[in-house]
């Protein structure tokens, strides 16, 4: 029986499904593609037909000192968040991989739950709590809040990598005379290195996109996405598209780097 004659496959339905898949992707990517196009478009209020090609909006953005201070804040915060969240996430992933203990379910819930709490609620809670500790309104408060949100992503990525490791590898190192710390340094860490870098990139990307919690707690130290929120509240301006396109290129760069690290040569389950 040739595949075409299979009574359970209909060319019509298969085609319809493919068309539907494409429509879904069009819906998801329309705003992303549009903001790229509008960022080079001369009209302040873009419509059909489009105006002419221009790089004016890019020049406006580059000339805006507020954007630069926002970018600087974003990079500072993202860098600190990436390192902290990856360190915490690694510890949690290793704990989950290695140990079985009373209350582990609660530990894992605590480690993975924060991203499911709506940002407005977390933002309000952070604002009120951190201002009691007189920490609110500083870049530190944004870092604290973002580590809470980002550590679960780092943990999930590194946990995935650890699950590809032969469970006997670490005990084997101990039997050969390595201390626990020695085995960590010479077996676990090298094995996890690609996932650790990937986690660093992903958490930096998540942090540099997050605007809601940052908006609540940042005070005067606004990150770039918080500035964008400000632009949205003020006048309509294609500068938003410019910043969006820029942030998109940077975060996609980070994601692709992470993807290559997780899937690349160094990421094979066993290395000869």
């Amino acid at each position: 029986m040739s595949p075409n004659r299979d009574p359970n496959r209909s060319a019509l339905i298969d085609t319809a499904l493919r068309v539907w898949i494409i429509l879904c992707f069009v819906f998801v990517f329309a705003p992303i593609a549009a903001s790229f196009v509008f960022s080079f478009n001369s009209d302040r209020f873009p419509t059909i037909p489009l105006g002419h090609f221009t790089t004016d909006w890019y020049r406006l953005v580059v000339a805006d000192p507020l954007v630069w201070s926002g970018l600087w804040n974003t990079l500072k915060v993202a860098g600190a968040v990436g390192v902290l969240a990856t360190v915490l996430g690694f510890g949690a992933a290793y704990t989950d991989h290695r140990h079985d203990f009373f209350g582990k379910q609660a530990y894992l819930a605590l480690a993975l739950l924060p991203p499911t709490i709506p940002a407005v609620i977390l933002g309000l809670a952070m604002l009120a709590y951190l201002s009691r500790l007189t920490l609110s309104g500083s870049a530190v408060s944004v870092i604290i809040a973002h580590v809470v949100i980002c550590a679960p992503f780092a943990m999930a990525l590194i946990r995935l990598r650890l699950s590809q490791m032969d469970a006997a590898l670490e005990p084997a190192a101990w039997n050969l005379g390595a201390t626990e710390w020695g085995a960590m340094r010479h077996v676990i860490l090298p094995f996890c290195a690609p996932a650790i870098l990937a986690a660093l990139f992903i958490t930096m990307a998540v942090s540099s996109d997050e605007f809601a919690v940052a908006w609540f707690v940042s005070g005067l130290n606004e990150t770039l996405p918080v500035k964008v929120l400000g632009f949205l509240q003020g006048q309509v301006s294609p500068r938003i598209n410019v910043i969006g396109s820029f942030v998109f290129v940077v975060s996609i760069g980070l994601v692709i780097a992470a993807q290559l690290l997780m899937a690349g040569r160094g990421a094979r389950p066993y290395e000869e």
Binding site: F25, V28, F29, A30, P31, I32, A34, S35, F38, F45, P46, T47, A205, D209, F211, P225, V228, L229, L232, V236, I240, N241, I243, G244, V247, F248, S251, I252, L254, V255, Q259
Partner: peptide, 21 residues
């Protein structure tokens, strides 16, 4: 892989693009 990309684009910017649409 393509469906993961939207998670790393700013939701604010996408909302703004919808305003234009």
């Amino acid at each position: 892989f393509l469906m993961v990309i939207p998670f790393f684009t700013s939701y604010l910017v996408r909302a703004y693009a919808w305003q234009v649409f």
